[in-house]
Design a protein around this nucleic acid. Sequence first.
DNA 1: AACGACGGTTCAATAAATGAACCGCAACAA
DNA 2: TTGTTGCGGTTCATTTATTGAACCGTCGTT
Lengths: 267, 267
Amino acid sequence: MGTVSKALSLLNYFNLSRQEIGLAELARLSGQNKATVYRHMTELLEHGLVEQVGSDRQYRLGPALIKLSSLREAAAPTREVSKKILQMLNEKTCETSHLSMIAGTQLNVTAYSYSSRHGTRVTMEDAEVISFHSTSSGLAVLAYSEAHFQDQILSRPLEKRTAFTITDPTKIRDMLDRIRDQGCAESVSGFEEDVHSIACPVFNAARDCIGAIAVAAPVARMNTDLKDITKDALFKASLEITQLMGGFPAHDYEALTGRILSTPLSG
Amino acid sequence: MGTVSKALSLLNYFNLSRQEIGLAELARLSGQNKATVYRHMTELLEHGLVEQVGSDRQYRLGPALIKLSSLREAAAPTREVSKKILQMLNEKTCETSHLSMIAGTQLNVTAYSYSSRHGTRVTMEDAEVISFHSTSSGLAVLAYSEAHFQDQILSRPLEKRTAFTITDPTKIRDMLDRIRDQGCAESVSGFEEDVHSIACPVFNAARDCIGAIAVAAPVARMNTDLKDITKDALFKASLEITQLMGGFPAHDYEALTGRILSTPLSG
DNA sequence: AACGACGGTTCAATAAATGAACCGCAACAA
DNA sequence: TTGTTGCGGTTCATTTATTGAACCGTCGTT
């Protein structure tokens, strides 16, 4: 791992619950020498990727990120495009929909949309990081990722988020086979209690899986009818979002969804 | 300059007109060795700050920026806050308003807002880079920056954007003195023909100038009345935005605006 | 006044970045 | 077909930049 990666890794310690971090704490968290962290942060500071705030000179993510993400959005309007498709999804399902994308070995929620149909709903956080093994999105991504990536994820310790989380790599690998057969992944209370989610993969131009689109509902509401509606809508949405990102579905996924979507919707 | 800075500098070559750049071109632009650029881009790639696209594997800004800027926005909601103040500005002036922030030695437009009052209006681009010497925002920032920074900017070649652009560093330094006397900067057709803009500085917690807030109108509409209304609104807005970003105005600016705003508005 | 934790700095030791040359490939021209 | 050019990506000896223990001054607590 190069110096640049070490420096950039420091950015990962900033999240919703830890927005401002001091030098010493950053050194502790990253396990690196304080002087090293200081120099890295200074370089990030010069580029506006972080800024220092307050009398104790804590670091937080910087203003340059706003500019860069604007440019990113101009170059690849994924956010805007995603939003529309997610909205269409929760019109059809009356449930929460979200899009997540692979970033390194993490899976980040990059956009989500709520339905106002029900008083209760599954809620999301901005820029939430979700796990691969315990969410439908993560499983959908894994199922359509290359073996090397699967191994990398599944060889790490798998957090048991709830009493229902499946953490046995062998069982997960079996599930991935079934997901490829069905074209979509399901997770019931694996990441959060009482959340039933269904997800389909999203692909890039090289037909690599780069993320997933999902619908999440309270367990009680996710009955057979809603499942059918959701899966149908998700298949279409995953193809659309893949296309709008300039990607193409994996060949088997393309064939599978082609078959499913050509037959009339029913149980 | 460290390795990290070199790598991060590569991100600066991506802008609105150059959204996708190949390895060779990036090496040429940055004047660095191709292998070096390749390794740096690979590291940025791993962190999702850039991504590769197309058969020619060109680079463009990556999806991680969306996540990071979401987190930045959660930690320091400057964008959201700015928007409201900018909207208030164009309610008062019926003209385009925008906020720009220093990033390194660049000045970036981070937010803008249009008024729907007139059929014609000054338009902006997302993440536009504006020059220091030929815009009211740039001049306002320079006027309230430390001498070292002024020297750095004014010693570079100053682009003559229009027939009216002032590029003589001596004249510009005289202007900066007047700007500090008046508390606001003006630019008439210096950056774009037919645009008259007025700007006030914005400060951080250390009372350093970190950006400017401006109103821009077609030259013909910027009459004495509108100027008065605009300046009054800008003084208030610059203090508000400074405060909302956790900053404090420079002592002289604080005193100046205090005097101006305590006297009744008139010509 | 002594203590510990903080942000920031130093400098010899060393591990990491570097770049010329290279590979294979694709597009194009003769 | 053959030769050329420019591309993305890779190699490895050279060297340059990164590293971390120890340090400084400051601040709040004891």
